[in-house]
Design a protein around this nucleic acid. Sequence first.
DNA 1: TTCAATAAATGAACATGTTCAATTGTTTTT
DNA 2: AAAAACAATTGAACATGTTCATTTATTGAA
Lengths: 213, 213
Amino acid sequence: MTESDIGTGTGRRARNKADKLRRIKESSYELFSEKGYDQTTMREIAARAGIALGTIFTYASDKRDLLFLIFNDRQDELRRVSFAAIPENAPFGDQIEALFTPFYYHFYTEPAFTRYLLRELTFFKNGIQSPRFQEGRRSIVKRIRELVEEATASDRLTPGNPSQHVAEMIFGLYQSELRLWLSGDNPAVKDGLKRLREAFDILIAGLANPRGD
Amino acid sequence: MTESDIGTGTGRRARNKADKLRRIKESSYELFSEKGYDQTTMREIAARAGIALGTIFTYASDKRDLLFLIFNDRQDELRRVSFAAIPENAPFGDQIEALFTPFYYHFYTEPAFTRYLLRELTFFKNGIQSPRFQEGRRSIVKRIRELVEEATASDRLTPGNPSQHVAEMIFGLYQSELRLWLSGDNPAVKDGLKRLREAFDILIAGLANPRGD
DNA sequence: TTCAATAAATGAACATGTTCAATTGTTTTT
DNA sequence: AAAAACAATTGAACATGTTCATTTATTGAA
């Protein structure tokens, strides 16, 4: 049983499960937001969702998995919005900035939740929600790789670079900037995006002195 | 009382504390290596160190802090070796590759331990060991910034870039590559370093097409 | 040396994530 | 409809990180 199976079918059993899943997601998110991930207990989540403690573990393999049960839905929607926002035939820097902008705006609405997410996603391999989460990230990196290849084909970027690696570098820089941004006390979206764009511009322009002595 | 105070002085009390601290470090490291961080219990650590459970918490604020109690010593030594290995007046790429090489070789000797470290260091703000750890990172970024500034002054790098941000980008890329490297099953040092160097070379050369249409 | 003051160590008690054998609810078969 | 098969739910029991009131050890003063 994977999460995608929950809610399929039309019998009473399926309806009950879909409803419980929804209540678990809602309760978890509310409590994580109100009190923080570490301060929220599984018992509280169960109580607010109106189910027994043990039932949670039918829907999530552990507490960390709950974070991604919540986030995976958002990630899907964010990816959709983000990919749609990429301007065609625009400078490469504009394109990748546009791609990451919706993520920054979303994370701004829940910085505390996002910090826990960034901590827990490191080497997140086990758990029911892990495959879906990792697939989401792969899909973002893949989209960046396509942008790199398109920009290379249209001579906006220099040829010869390994597109997969370049895409991973861009995603790595994004993550690094995101962490720095969220480490600050009151991070404004504009400031974070400005720094991110600066990093991309430096990567695009390169560090080497063109005089090349 | 901070860790740096432990072991100072010459009285019996100071000697006892220094000795206990050493035993705690040894036991923690052995057990983390043998069974993994998550699988090691505080009770096991206490038993092997020959102290009571509660005593550990005089030396580390929590379990995570134990990881950094162990790592901070290594980080100091690694930094020393790493900084000394940087060739002067060499190409910038050679310099930053040399700086990170000792870290890769060290992490190769304990990949499991390192994975836990990378997970737990995200937003590691509380805990007795946090200030020392964060200071170590700042010191590495500072050294990179100096290299950037030296290379810019000697015309190896193009002028006009914000050196602090460039240094943070390089450190961010290193972290990102390190995570990818350690995500693999049997990561060889050479492979990891080759990829890291490729990333640095791309950053140095830039992505933009110099034909610049 | 004796005594007070301080520091350190102790482990029982507690809090909370997780497991699992037993129970309840739903679906399918006859 | 009754029975059998299957799925989902339950919460007590367990495992383990952490706290803290109590005890023990060390130091410095009288």
